[in-house]
């Protein structure tokens, strides 16, 4: 029972990391109607940025805060630049061209990392050592709780931003009908840029929490993690914010449980099980758990 509860909490925190990253996929898909395959690689670049800044400036609280800010800003800028240079020129191109470009951007980022840092995994200096607490005999890592809390907070802020602000209403309008949004006087390109900036900043927050939990980074760290977050986004219903949260948490819990409770011979296959669940989901409900049916436009 103790193992079950602590594994559950572990899965919750891993899952909320997936959820944060799934949000980026989901928002961009909802508004630009494209799969930004490079999203996971933005996380990887974020972790390398931490590796460099923390290595140079140390991990005192002030320097940590500064590093985190620099890194998140850098991720946001990277997302903005990727959209401007790679995706914006393809606004009227076929979805397939956009998809191939996105895969190309993903490889580009991986290769830049490979060139600069080499293929060896690098260790990010430890910056959060929060320890654990015991509730009864159940050991709970404080970091897990922190990750969960930060994710929930961000989800709430994002939902408020979208439902209460003018920019949020512009995002909703653009996601439904770009032409009609433009007729309202909404700057569609700026709205899409903003979506990439927010999604990439969230990837930055994801990088900060990820590296606190798993302080190793290589050129492919982001894409492996990103694919699972993407699966979470699809699972919850791509385009839906609560869907990303639920999808992420479910995939996280499944993965954590599989790692602990599967017989040793099968535990390496835990990733496979996450995808199996995804496939079953898509067969049963192709739009995902909270996905809306596509409304046909005339």
């Amino acid at each position: 029972m103790q193992t079950f509860i602590s594994t559950l909490i572990d899965g919750l925190s891993l899952g909320s990391l997936y959820a944060l990253v799934a949000l980026g996929y989901s928002m961009v898909y909802g508004i630009a109607k494209m799969l930004n395959f490079a999203h996971g690689d933005v996380i990887m670049i974020g972790i390398y940025t931490l590796f460099v800044t923390l290595g140079a400036m140390g991990t005192s609280p002030l320097m940590l805060a500064l590093s985190a800010l620099i890194m998140i800003a850098f991720c946001a800028l990277l997302g903005f630049t990727i959209e401007k240079l790679a995706y914006k020129p393809l606004r009227t191109a076929s979805p397939l061209s956009v998809l191939i470009t996105a895969i190309g951007v993903s490889y580009l980022l991986q290769n830049i990392a490979l060139l600069v840092f080499g293929s060896r995994q690098q260790k990010v200096p430890t910056y959060f050592s929060l320890g654990s607490i015991y509730i009864g005999s159940v050991q709970i890592e404080l970091l897990s709780l922190l990750i969960l809390a930060v994710t929930v907070l961000i989800m709430i802020l994002l939902a408020l931003f979208i439902s209460k602000t003018k920019l949020g209403s512009a995002m909703l309008a653009v996601s439904e009908d770009k032409g009609a949004a433009q007729l309202m006087g909404i700057n569609v390109n700026a709205t899409i840029s903003l979506t990439f900036v927010i999604g990439s900043a969230l990837a930055g927050v994801g990088a900060l929490l990820y590296a606190a939990k798993m302080p190793w980074v290589g050129p492919y760290t982001g894409s492996v993690f990103g694919i699972k977050a993407f699966a979470a986004a699809v699972f919850g219903g791509i385009g839906s914010i609560p869907g990303a949260m639920i999808g992420g948490v479910l995939i996280g819990i499944i993965e954590a449980m599989m790692n602990v409770f599967l017989p040793d011979a099968l535990s390496n296959a835990s990733d496979g099980f996450a995808y199996l669940v995804l496939i079953i989901m898509l067969v049963l409900k192709p739009s995902g758990l909270l996905g809306r049916k596509q409304i046909e436009k005339v």
């Binding site: 909703l172 439904e176 009609a180 409304i295 436009k297």
Partner: peptide, 8 residues
């Protein structure tokens, strides 16, 4: 075709 925002 009106193009109202059907989900809002």
């Amino acid at each position: 075709g009106r193009r109202i925002f059907a989900e809002l």
